[in-house]
């Protein structure tokens, strides 16, 4: 009784309502795209996007633009760039790592530029881009986030069947006449859009966890791709709301930590021994 009344009271606060709405939509989008990201073994792309999201957001702030313009331009641009470069020239991990380390260094430059030149600068802008500020979303920002996340979800679901085919067996899919390359690029653009949205919720450093943890857990729990896709979205949603509730109940705990903690605990639970054995192997062998 008392818990439900506390929950209803929490939803009376506009900031919490916005966080629940925007966070929920973002979590479902991240769960859906994250599943394909894990299936296609492109988690490293998520890592790369977390670096560029930071630099893009702070470059936009330093130039005096809306933060979201920089976020979307940087993440979608880099995702497409990685997709184009990925096939043709297999860049080695030293080059990629060096480039992203430098991009992050550039982000620090923009951060300092922003805090020293803009008189209206928010001194904690860097921290909130890195670690998210979901409790600070305004009503319009929350509704924009919901809208964009729904578009991403709809696009991923529309692409789900051909994308699944192309991810599991690219050669056969290409032989059947599927535009494998185009599918890969469209998917990466969706991942970029999702990363840009997720940065506002959990921050650029933690979005990798939101993409990887629910998807990894779902893949360990079921063989069926569609069930795993749905499970990944549901897990992400549950973890997001659990994290938000924790952040609300314990004010000293930042909501991003609550979300990551819930995601990690759920993922950790899937490693407990189960009587039915490790059926997940079959899916992995196919992928």
């Amino acid at each position: 009784m008392s818990w439900s009344s506390v929950g209803l009271a929490a939803l009376d606060h506009p900031f919490f309502l916005h966080a629940v709405l925007a966070g929920g939509a973002i979590a479902v989008a991240a769960g859906l795209t994250g599943y394909f990201l894990v299936l296609r073994a492109q988690i490293f792309t998520g890592d790369a996007l977390s670096h560029t999201a930071f630099t893009g957001a702070l470059a936009a702030l330093a130039l005096g633009w809306d933060l979201r313009i920089g976020l979307f331009a940087a993440t979608i641009g880099v995702a497409l760039l990685l997709g184009v470069l990925g096939r043709r020239s297999r860049a080695d991990d030293v080059t990629i790592g060096s480039a992203f380390s430098w991009i992050l260094g550039l982000g620090v430059f923009f951060l300092t530029l922003y805090t020293t030149t803009r008189s209206t600068a928010n001194g904690n802008a860097g921290v909130s881009v890195l670690f998210g500020s979901i409790f600070g979303l305004s009503a319009s920002a929350a509704w924009t986030a919901v809208l964009i996340a729904l578009v991403v979800c709809a696009a991923v679901l529309a692409l789900a069947r051909p994308l699944l085919f192309a991810s599991l067996d690219e050669a056969v899919a290409a032989a059947r006449g599927l535009p494998v390359r185009l599918l890969g690029l469209a998917f990466l653009a969706l991942v970029g859009a999702c990363a840009a949205e997720a940065t506002q919720a959990v921050g650029s450093l933690l979005l990798l966890g939101l993409l990887a943890a629910p998807a990894g857990a779902a893949q360990r729990l079921t063989d069926s791709p569609y069930r795993a896709l749905a499970l990944s979205a549901v897990l992400a949603l549950g973890e997001m709301w659990a994290g938000l509730a924790l952040g609300y109940a314990v004010p000293s705990v930042p909501p991003s930590f609550g979300i990551m903690a819930a995601a990690t605990v759920v993922y950790g639970l899937t490693f407990l021994p189960r009587p039915s054995g490790r059926r997940g192997r079959a899916v992995r062998a196919l992928a």
Binding site: A41, R220, M260
Partner: peptide, 27 residues
């Protein structure tokens, strides 16, 4: 290694540790 299912695990652990760092900072 940065590939396969292990990469999902590593990504989760990385994000969780960074979140822990942020928690310590907030505390």
């Amino acid at each position: 290694q940065g590939r396969g299912e292990e990469s999902a695990l590593t990504g989760t652990v990385q994000a969780f540790l960074l979140a822990c760092g942020f928690l310590f900072v907030a505390l």
